[in-house]
């Protein structure tokens, strides 16, 4: 049996490149104006999974939880070399904190079944919490290794990895199944393969497939049955070509609705303040709060901060 690998990936707003267009007049960030990207360290996790695949006969499935447009990162993963993608999406997931998210992802991983290794980026750039990895591992009741920098080798039931935790660097051999979080220093993610891009740009989630059929269908409202049949045909055809992304809802993964989304999230956001730093030649700043505030506003506007 080939090793089954799952990479957990997240589509995130590109917070590291907050452009002037994305700043509102009041100094806050307009999230909608930021491009949605593949979370950078999740790409390092995917690269490590693909390295393992290159050396063994492992299969790599990328799983993401998010809105329907997160399908874009599944396609990108396919261009790089992943074997399959799964989208977990449901409006009931809205407002999920890391506990509710890890509960949901763990259910998705259980649904896949027999997974030997789960890889994720150390953290996502929109939240920077680094909590999903350890919490998914805990929910699955398996061991975790965070801050992994190098894959050494893998055997049937064990794996050897290098990691640095603070001031201690270790080469660790440990049992599978295991969850690891991968840092940006681990590797350089590969670029898209041209042939893979041509093929997998046609890959679709169930939601996308359905939308496309509805858009092109001429059957109208009297042909509901015909329409549903067309959708099924479309999905079947995508599946046969390996171009279908499994698309799971909360019920598909068997989620307890009390443990997902807002109800399943112990943490609440009480208040959000924009960092209004108060704004070259040498500019004299008065040593008082007003002066400093103005200087900070300028530094935000010219993108020195953020």
């Amino acid at each position: 049996m080939p090793l089954k690998l799952i990479v957990l990936a997240k589509q995130v707003p590109d917070t590291h490149n907050v452009t002037a267009d994305a700043m509102k007049a009041d100094g806050t960030v307009n999230r909608g104006a930021l491009p949605a990207i593949f979370n950078p360290e999740d790409l390092n996790a995917l690269e490590m999974a693909l390295e393992i695949k290159d050396q063994t006969d492992a299969t790599v499935t990328v799983m993401t939880m998010g809105p329907p447009r997160a399908a874009n990162i599944l396609r990108e993963a396919m261009y790089m070399g992943a074997d399959a993608g799964i989208l977990i999406t449901d409006r009931h997931f809205a407002g999920a904190d890391t506990l509710a998210t890890s509960y949901t992802l763990a259910l998705g991983i259980k649904k896949v079944g027999d997974v030997s290794l789960i890889l994720c980026g150390r953290q996502a750039i929109d939240g920077d919490t680094a909590q999903i990895g350890p919490q998914v591992a805990e929910k699955l009741g398996i061991n975790q290794l965070t801050y992994v920098e190098e894959f050494v080798n893998v055997e049937k039931k064990s794996i050897t990895l290098k990691r640095t935790l603070g001031q201690v660097s270790e080469t660790v051999k440990t049992a599978l199944p295991l969850l690891i979080t991968v840092t940006s220093s681990a590797n350089h993610p590969r670029t898209f393969g041209a042939k893979r891009l041509m093929k997998y740009k046609k890959a679709r989630t169930a939601i996308e497939a359905e939308q496309e059929v509805r858009r092109s269908s001429t059957t109208g409202e009297y042909g509901m049955e015909i329409l549903l049949d067309e959708i099924e045909q479309k999905k079947k055809s995508l599946k046969s070509k390996g171009l279908f992304f499994e698309t799971w809802s909360a019920d598909d993964v068997g989620a307890d609705h009390e443990q997902i989304g807002l109800p399943g999230s112990p943490t609440k956001v009480k208040k959000v303040q924009s960092v209004v730093f108060a704004a070259s030649e040498l500019k004299k700043i008065e040593p008082n709060p007003e002066g400093i505030r103005e200087m900070f506003i300028e530094l935000i506007e010219d993108r020195t901060f953020g």
Binding site: L99, T129, Q131, G133, P134, Q135, T146, Y147, L165, P266
Partner: peptide, 23 residues
């Protein structure tokens, strides 16, 4: 919020089914 703190805290919070705020 060190490497070790960020490794153990989420695990413990998940086990206790409570919230955790990072950093």
């Amino acid at each position: 919020a060190t490497a070790i703190g960020r490794d153990i805290a989420p695990r413990v919070a998940s086990d206790l089914r409570t919230g955790l705020t990072a950093d």
